[in-house]
Design a protein around this nucleic acid. Structure first.
Lengths: 165, 165
DNA sequence: TTTCCCTTTGAATAAAAATACAAAAATAGG
DNA sequence: CCTATTTTTGTATTTTTATTCAAAGGGAAA
């Protein structure tokens, strides 16, 4: 039976933990980058060892949504989508029918409960604000087209006057 | 306005589909291996192109549980552990109705056969949450509104996973 | 201790993957 | 049709990652 003594394993185990931690917290895109961070933390190792560590830890390198690559832990390997999701600037209101409003360029997109879009869009159209050019409604989505020089802030303000918060 | 229609983009789109299919079905552990399979299927490309395709498809190479490496689709990247119960989460393609997709600024406009828009839009809403803010469907036209930071490339990719472009 | 495994590691290297650059193909918009 | 622009691709190369090989060191047990 082979044992791992405290002294012996300390380095490797700690290193492994640090690797997981760093990969979890930061956007690492190459072993070299990670290697530098580990060195800064006082670990002493080479790329070869790091490669082996990553293999043991099942840490993968996957394409990210910014055109680069990122290392991900096995449990969170789908966390890239999370990243993207978190980045979306959704403002969440609460109202009957109304679900959320988000922006794409200078357009606002309102999500509603199914079938509510038409009604709410009509409401917006009726209030015919000076900042809103028009709306296009589907079943549960409304595209709000603002007038040219309207900024996001005034659009939200206007919308919030039409749609009860 | 850039226009992708059914007939065009055939080579790349088909290749992408094949890549996804192969990666999903087999244990690929290097680009060279995959390249050979693609060549057998009649595709004509080099490792450079394959590398770019894999990047676009967000296919990652991760350590497997047999001491090697395996390429995995983004949706299944955490499912390596589930290799055994691998449920084939097949991409649900819509077989007909689709006519074309075009772009106008950030937005994509999908033309469909009459009356198909609603159904396809629903499909897109269901599957495209990562990059798509919402859709607005008429009778034969769908406006696809992407999330803010989404580039055309990711949007096309997402759409092509839902609809056979 | 000595011997035998086993594990870990680094240096060097091989293997694999990503990209710069240029050219070719495709497409929008006259 | 023609032109400008964008996209796709291959070649050659760089960059990155994996592994080979040898060596060092620890634990176990005689």
């Amino acid at each position: 039976m082979y044992f791992y003594s405290k002294g012996k394993m300390k380095n490797k185990a700690n290193r492994m933990k640090s690797i997981r931690k760093i990969v979890h917290e930061r956007r690492i895109s190459s072993q070299e980058e990670l290697l530098n961070l580990l060195t800064e933390e006082g670990f002493n190792l080479t790329q070869a060892t790091l490669s082996r560590d990553l293999k043991q830890l099942k840490i993968a390198k996957m394409p990210d949504y910014e055109g680069g690559y990122i290392y991900v832990l096995p449990e969170e390997s789908s966390s890239l989508s999370k990243t993207v999701r978190m980045k979306s600037q959704d403002v969440h209101f609460i109202q009957s029918g109304f679900e959320s409003v988000a922006f794409c360029g200078h357009f606002a997109v309102i999500k509603t409960k199914p079938a509510y879009a038409g009604g709410i869009a009509a409401e917006i159209d009726k209030k015919g604000s000076k900042v809103i050019l028009g709306t296009i409604a589907g079943d549960d989505t409304i595209l709000v087209i603002p007038k040219e020089k309207t900024d996001r802030e005034s659009l939200v303000r206007t919308l919030s006057e039409i749609i009860p918060l």
